[in-house]
Design a binder for these strands. Structure first.
Lengths: 205, 205
DNA sequence: ACGCGACTTTACCAGCGGGTATACTGCCGA
DNA sequence: TCGGCAGTATACCCGCTGGTAAAGTCGCGT
């Protein structure tokens, strides 16, 4: 007897949501621990005990430690990509849109998954995951780089070497993930605003 | 029969130099491997075999893996400190000296030990080494931060939030270690020059 | 010639960490 | 009431890695 054509498997609509919520909880905790102690130094038992479950429970939701790390950075990259792409698609000069981009990017660098993106070295992922990771990062770099070129074209941005400028800007932003502390004196938004202000001066014509 | 009072132990003047050279070779190779594959992913056997010796040989020169990593970052930090301190001690406005500082710092980020400094997370060192590592980094931060303050005082530098500006500048520079490749299109000096140029625009009044 | 000490190696250990086999529990539909 | 299944736990395996013991080896001064 086949299930109704419109939804095989999904007898219960909320069961799937429950599972997704638990997956997410694992990712959040894992990202936090990775950020604090490093990926290799964090054992799956550490993550499990922090969630007050045991290792096999986590492996019920994920196939491997590598998959967990990759999902973490995928989350972070998705957020960055969304913010930067939205900024690039707006109206205004290249510099105007670059300011929005920097703001969104900097904000992402103060959240668990965003920090994970910045702190995760390529070598920590499996070859397969690493390839995907690099591809996603390249996409974001391309958006940033494209906006610099547009800004140069419309005269709002000046840069001797656009490629180098792109690296330096993304470096300043990425490094936020290395010093930001939630309990620090500056709020996330103050940091993002200040970053926009300083980097704008570096880029404006 | 005691050794001559002026130099106990040093019967052979070059024996010590030999030993130092070998220590250095271990450090260089270790730093290179740490940078390429990450500290935790690099085993002592890897380092040893790359030098065509065996593990105990390395442990004849160093007490632990932690000591090797710490010596690597100490080398890098010493180079950075030397360059930045020299720049800060020169004449000229704050901004003038800051340009020299950025140039020296950026150059250091394209060498094995400098890269190691930027890529090494605090969590990878033992508590004791970590404390020293942080202290040395703080020293360099203080030099950079001091120069910004002097530049603001003499009117050559403008920064809404000096602390944030210092973080962003050091971030842009530190990130060089994450993308620089010796076989890339730009020479070390071109990168350093370009970095100075872009960051100067971000800081100048 | 010889012994001493710096250096190097072979062989080994102990612990840890990713991942799994297996069995238990409780909930749902029939 | 019962079968099945998602989810969780206990106990375990095995390869790898930091680090070491002990046995050479080589070159030098005497």
């Amino acid at each position: 007897m086949p299930a109704p054509a419109d939804s095989p498997w999904s007898d219960r609509p909320d069961a799937d949501a429950e599972r997704q919520a638990k997956r997410m909880a694992v990712l959040r905790m894992a990202a936090r621990q990775f950020n604090e102690n490093g990926f290799r130094a964090t054992s799956m038992a550490d993550v499990a005990s922090a969630l007050q479950v045991t290792k096999p429970t986590i492996y019920h939701y994920f196939a491997s430690k590598d998959e967990i790390l990759f999902e973490c950075v995928r989350m972070g990259l998705a957020q960055i990509r969304e913010g930067t792409a939205r900024a690039a698609a707006r109206g205004g000069t290249g510099l105007d849109r670059m300011q929005d981009l920097i703001h969104a990017y900097a904000l992402a660098m103060t959240e668990d998954f965003g920090i994970c993106v910045s702190r995760t070295g390529d070598a920590e992922l499996s070859p397969a995951s690493r390839a995907k990771f690099r591809a996603l990062k390249r996409e974001i770099d391309a958006i940033l780089r494209g906006l610099i070129d547009e800004g140069i074209a419309d005269g709002s941005i000046r840069a001797q070497d656009p490629q180098l400028a792109a690296f330096l800007v993304s470096g300043a932003i990425n490094w936020i993930a290395h010093w930001y502390r939630p309990d620090g004196p500056k709020s996330r938004d103050e940091i993002a605003e200040g970053t926009v202000e300083t980097l704008t001066r570096a880029l404006s014509a």
